[in-house]
């Protein structure tokens, strides 16, 4: 019987949980590797301490998690979207003439080769404890990913499509809106999908260092108090949120580019 992708994911997740539970039972030290029921029970409830609530109540802990997830989520969505739009715009502008193309080809390899997370302290320094710094940092990192993807995608457009549009009388602006943008759209959607996944790490980097709220702030405090249960809970939460945004953006991508069938899907059909 053919196994569906969802079934495979559940199966893989179940194996991870079993291995975790067995390892925790074998180690027998809650401070080193707590079992799942401890993480989802005691650790979750103790998040309530961040708001001064009842640390024995799962609901209070859950409320705190929900509040901080919401804050990070808003930061990720707003900053990533702004960064990606700017990256797309600048990438498109780079295709207009040879000077902008040359400028892009010189600057982008520089930016691309700098480990983005290594730049986090710079933004902390520039913006101090201001949450605006987190937005700017996520937007900048998303911008770098998107502008690189856009420029390389434009370079890979089938030149015959441009020639066809030109011969059929399409002018430069119409050519950009009706040929260049649709031609790069599948790559842009994929880059946006990847950036949304990465944005959670960018947010973690920023919040970890400066924020007084958000999931990165929770990670920071859990680390200070060496609370392995909370850290593991947050790891799972980050994983779940990353997966959720990846799937949602992937679904949106299918709506935006209905003509685009990935080779992966074709192989899966066979």
């Amino acid at each position: 019987m053919k196994r569906l992708p969802v079934q495979s994911a559940v199966f893989a997740f179940a194996i991870v949980l079993i291995v975790w539970e067995l390892a925790a039972w074998r180690i027998g030290n809650v401070k080193l590797l707590p079992p799942i029921r401890h993480v989802c029970g005691h650790s979750l409830a103790s998040f309530a301490r961040f708001s001064g609530g009842d640390s024995n109540s799962l609901a209070s802990g859950f409320k705190v998690i929900l509040y901080h997830t919401g804050i990070t989520f808003i930061r990720v969505i707003i900053a990533t979207t702004i960064g990606c739009l700017l990256g797309l715009l600048l990438g498109l502008l780079s295709s207009f003439n040879s000077f902008s193309r040359m400028a892009a080809n010189t600057c982008l390899p520089l930016l691309r080769n700098v480990p983005l997370l290594a730049l986090t302290p710079l933004f902390v320094f520039w913006f101090g404890g201001n949450p605006l710094g987190i937005y700017v940092w996520i937007a900048f990192a998303s911008f770098v990913v998107m502008v690189t993807a856009t420029v390389s995608s434009i370079a890979n457009i089938n030149p015959d499509l441009i020639i066809l549009a030109t011969v059929l009388g399409t002018r430069i602006l119409t050519r950009t809106t009706r040929v260049v943008i649709p031609a790069i759209l599948p790559d842009v959607v994929t880059a946006y999908q990847a950036t949304m996944g990465l944005a959670w790490s960018f947010a973690l980097g920023g919040e970890y260092l400066v924020a007084r709220s958000g999931l990165g702030f929770l990670v920071s405090y859990s680390y200070i108090y060496a609370d392995m249960g909370k850290l593991l809970f947050l790891v799972m939460l980050y994983g779940g949120l990353g997966l959720l945004t990846f799937e949602v953006t992937g679904y949106l991508g299918k709506i935006v580019c209905p003509w685009n069938v990935s080779a992966h899907n074709e192989i899966r059909k066979k």
Partner: peptide
């Protein structure tokens, strides 16, 4: 064109 160039989108 010989490669059947159409706008795929």
């Amino acid at each position: 064109f010989q490669e059947n160039v159409l706008f795929p989108w």
